[in-house]
Design a protein around this nucleic acid. Structure first.
Lengths: 235, 235
DNA sequence: ACCTGAACACCGTTCAAGT
DNA sequence: ACCTGAACACCGTTCAAGT
């Protein structure tokens, strides 16, 4: 029948499955449907293939997540021109601007922090990114010991992730507002702080609705300035 | 038959299910079997009950996770004597010691960081903890604005979580070692740093096997010292 | 009021089979 | 070599039914 003929033709026209195509599709699905929407069956559908075909290219779903993480880092690598850096430039500025670029990339993939942090095996591209970060600091005159502390102190912030304790969704934000009103007496400091910090243009601001970019940069600069102070004191 | 009689007796002797017992059991299961082992069926088994009984006390699994988080914070609240604080004590020392106590509690629940960060609704006990932290800083003379920045800058570190980008398991650690050996030429800075930082007593140390306590305190002090500097400069 | 059994829609994954 | 269909063991959850 024509249906099987059409199917055959579609299969022929369809580009062959590769690991790279699987990972790219995984990123796309996670971006559009959220990480819970990323199932092997949904991923296969995105690739116009049956779910079981994925297992020819990939051992299991964990490998898909590993690949998705590395794919996102590949995006960053392209943006940062292969992680190349100028060894004569000032280390603090270089580091800061790279991290803010990383943050821009990560903001396009809201699922990334949780998935990155759930990996137990490190992505090759992430290692190259880290090598360049250490390189920038070393060429800037920091000791290996301080570079090591710095990498730990920055932690996931090195990739642009905010260490926020929780990200309220719309319901959650409402929830916070209610809780603060109800318990104003038991939470005098928090309520007082938020009342004062809330700007006129955002009268409903709470911890969940702050200017994330400003707060990210504040925390980042606190760390970088501290490292600089130690670095110049030590040398 | 005796079996049904025994069953009846067991049911009678069994303490009645409550939300609190469900949450405590959830923490216990996650501690012993890992977060993936915490299924509604496994949780019911732990409570000597059928899985569907849980739904009489709790709307869904998300609520169980919310409760587990609040239960862990309850542990911290007990340890910290209801979050009470001495308004005359030095804010930086108070904050530091509380955070290190929180870290001790969290180290007993390795699943906690991921679950805390996946919540979209804030735990009441966590809010009380935060209120006390702001209280400590306010009584120490910091402005509301600086307190607000401080809470964001500390982020999940305020609860003792390390912002490590990934926690290698045993296989993952092996993996890192291999990768570094193989790619030594492409990762000159990282390999050089780790070679120098590795201590004689831990010749196989890599980023995954560092002294977590030391690194946590280093990053925490970097932030606290920076906040102190801003606070005293501003006043 | 509190608990249960059967059932549903969905997972990740295995394996033998197709082309 | 690459893809598929049927099937398995497992989820979270609904609903009507038991006591």
């Amino acid at each position: 029948m024509t249906t099987t003929a059409q199917t055959r033709e579609q299969e022929a026209n369809r580009p062959p499955l590769t690991r790279e195509r699987v990972f790219a599709a995984a990123v796309a699905v996670a971006d559009t449907e959220g990480i819970d929407g990323l199932t092997m069956r949904r991923l296969a559908e995105e690739l116009d293939v049956e779910a079981m075909s994925l297992y020819y290219h990939v051992p299991n779903k964990e490998a898909v997540l590993d690949g998705a993480v590395d794919h996102v880092m590949g995006e960053l690598e392209e943006t940062l021109d292969g992680f190349k850096f100028d060894p004569t430039s000032e280390w603090k500025r270089s580091l800061r601007s790279r991290i803010l670029v990383a943050r821009d990339v990560m903001l396009r993939h809201p699922w990334a922090p949780a998935v990155f942090e759930s990996r137990t095996t490190i992505s090759p591209t992430t290692v190259r990114y880290f090598d360049a970060m250490v390189g920038i600091m070393r060429e800037g005159g920091l000791s290996n010991d301080l570079c090591h502390h710095a990498m730990h102190a920055l932690g996931s912030r090195a990739l642009g992730f905010s260490p926020e304790l929780f990200e309220p969704d719309d319901d959650g934000a409402e929830n916070v507002g209610e809780m603060l009103e109800q318990a104003a007496k038991e939470l005098p400091y928090l309520v007082g702080m938020l009342a004062e910090v809330a700007h006129d243009d955002r009268p409903d601001a709470t911890l969940g609705w702050c200017d994330d970019q400003t707060e990210f940069e504040f925390g980042l600069d606190l760390l970088l300035d501290g490292l600089e102070r130690i670095g110049t004191a030590g040398s």
